[in-house]
Amino acid sequence: MIPSFFLRPITRFAIAPPPASATRAGVAIVLIVRNEARHIAEWARFHQMAGVMQFFVYDNGSTDGTIEALRAALPETALTVIPWAQRRFRTTLGREIHNQVLAYAHALMNFGPACRWMAFIDVDEFLVPVSARSIPEAMQGLEGTAHVSLPWQMFGRGGHAGPPEGGVVASYTARARDSFELSHGLNFKCLVDPSRVTEVGVHGFAIDGREEGVNDAGQVAAHKDRVKPGFASRERLQLNHYYTRSDAELQAKIGRGSNKDVQADKHIRRVMRIVQAIEADTVEDRTAIDFVARLHSPQP
């Protein structure tokens, strides 16, 4: 019998970081996506407006026009699409290899040298400058760092039975009062310096062989200590995670199942625990709406 340890999914990869180009600059986003045509254009335009220079999009077999919507939303020079149509990789022992981490490792090794920062987020996540007019402006003061952890700010259904006409940012403003107090579902996404990444994950990367980084206020912590009181910060950047969007989209999310080998009933229970925790105590959050308004107002 194979010990259970050897059957655990492979969710982290060690890499040799690529050397930085002498002309590297700007913020890039790495995204793995499948069938998100309804929302992908808004997501792309928002982040381009926020100062993202390059989008490296790993297409996991979209069939609904997702990539066509992306090409219509972004300049050709800003978008690189990589076909990535595989749902499961396995070793000869049967261990699942996490497809998202594999895509992230590929992006770091192949596109990382040209970028000062790479952000690894999903299409239901928006990087929102809190008071600055762009993500690069918000990152000023963090130039000497190589790993910035941003906690999810969790948004629920907001009373919408079906997808609203106004889009995600304008329509969803009900956020969990404190994501760090949620009993389920708290996690981070990251911006990293590709030239210093030595291990790749979804929610944390090793930098120069160390499992640590900073929050957006520059406070250092080991990754395992990020959930401790005092580390949560949205001083410069807020990561809005529109976990459910409308109820109809939540039901579709549940129907698609997990992106890992998880029993269907276990997956449903987990998702609904997170939803209930988000919606149990909410506040109005207009940070993303205010950012868009700020961009359309005259500079002082």
Rank of each mutant, 00 (worst) to 15 (best):
A28N: 03
S171E: 13
D225R: 01
A105H: 00
V30Q: 05
V168L: 13
E249Y: 11
R71S: 03
S134G: 08
M154N: 12
N35R: 04
R273S: 14
A28G: 13
K253C: 08
R95S: 14
R45G: 08
L102Y: 00
I40D: 03
V123P: 00
F126P: 03
E165Q: 15
E68M: 05
V202D: 09
P18I: 08
V148K: 01
A232T: 08
T173N: 13
H39V: 13
V128S: 06
F55L: 07
V148D: 07
T23K: 03
P75I: 10
G144P: 09
V275W: 01
Q48H: 14
F89S: 05
F180C: 10
V271A: 04
A107Y: 03
V130Y: 13
M139V: 03
L191W: 04
E181L: 15
A161K: 09
V57S: 08
I278T: 04
Q263D: 15
F111L: 08
R88A: 04
I29R: 06
F55M: 06
T92A: 14
D216R: 10
K228V: 08
P17V: 07
A103T: 03
Q276R: 15
G209L: 02
E143A: 15
H47M: 13
V200I: 07
V283Y: 10
R12H: 05
H223I: 15
A174T: 03
I254R: 14
I121H: 07
D216T: 11
I32C: 00
R294G: 11
T80C: 12
V101T: 02
D290I: 01
T11R: 02
S62W: 03
Q238F: 11
E181K: 15
